[in-house]
């Protein structure tokens, strides 16, 4: 039973998963915001390790990644950050990045170093299960959950494969597109969530495009959790003291609590 499994098993509450890019707008701000996210009601935090060519990301996270690289963020600095954060927070930490930096660092080294400091999961959007057998085996041996993604285009066979192999939870991409805030989510999202949930008892969390408490509440009626990223990134630039991030996350938490009773 992994630390991520505990989130879903110990409580019936809908999970709130927050994404921030490490090093945006600065490493200090990332280090400040993560404990604040945990306090304000996040259940899992995703730390984005920046990559020069983030092709699954929209403008907001592209810019955040670019800025983070300018700030000199590396895999090493992300691992050291987790080591420091583990003194303060106990919620699961998941690394999200692209495959090339991981491949370059070495899959074995990456899993080893991540596990040692207390990383609980890995998400790599450009590494579908078809290409990830090595990472899957090594991360498993290190006790790290490798979380796979599903999308609105996924066929029954893909849903079957991903739900079988994904650990921790299933990351369901709400729209065909890149990350980033959107006014409207796909109209047939309910049907998509239901289709995936019929195939698995593992938790299904929905991300991409969720930027308001209303959207979070709507999605969480059927899903086990929601993932919010770009909106938090945008708010992080607003103020030094992160007041608006705190109040936004609290509102998301309340919306999810209401969704549970919807």
């Amino acid at each position: 039973m992994s630390r991520i499994d505990d989130v879903f098993n110990k409580s019936k509450a809908k999970a709130l998963i927050a994404y921030v890019t490490v090093g945006y707008p600065s490493l200090e701000q990332t280090e400040r915001v993560v404990p604040l996210l945990a306090e304000s009601g996040c259940d899992i935090v995703e730390l984005g390790i920046p990559f020069s060519d983030p092709l699954a990301d929209g403008a907001t996270i592209q810019q955040a990644s670019f800025c983070a690289l300018q700030n000199g963020i590396t895999i090493k600095s992300c691992i050291e950050l987790v080591k420091r954060l583990r003194q303060e927070i106990s919620i699961p930490i998941v690394f999200m990045t692209y495959f090339n930096p991981v491949f370059n660092y070495g899959i074995e080294n990456f899993c080893h170093d991540s596990a040692v400091v207390g990383v609980n999961g890995i998400i790599i959007p450009d590494l579908p299960p078809d290409e990830s057998s090595e990472l899957e085996i090594i991360s498993y041996a290190r006790g790290i959950d490798l979380i796979y993604l599903l999308a609105p285009t996924s066929t029954q066979e893909r849903i079957q494969m991903v739900t079988r192999r994904s650990r921790g939870f299933i990351y369901l991409v709400s729209i065909t597109g890149t990350t980033g805030a959107r006014d409207n989510l796909t109209t047939d999202l309910d049907e998509l969530i239901a289709r995936v949930k019929r195939m698995t008892s593992k938790p299904v969390c929905v991300g991409f495009g969720i930027s308001t408490p209303q959207q979070a509440r709507q999605v969480a009626r059927l899903a086990d959790g929601v993932i919010v990223g770009s909106q938090i990134i945008q708010l992080m630039l607003a103020e030094q003291d992160l007041t608006s991030v705190r109040s936004f996350v609290k509102k998301l938490r309340q919306a999810l609590n209401r969704a549970q009773s919807d």
Partner: peptide
């Protein structure tokens, strides 16, 4: 069958595109 020339090639793309490439 997986689109590799020796150790090079493959499909390192978001899940959304896998069914598109299959088609």
């Amino acid at each position: 069958t997986r689109g590799y020339f020796g150790e090079y090639g493959g499909r390192f793309v978001p899940e959304t595109l896998i069914p598109v490439l299959d088609k």
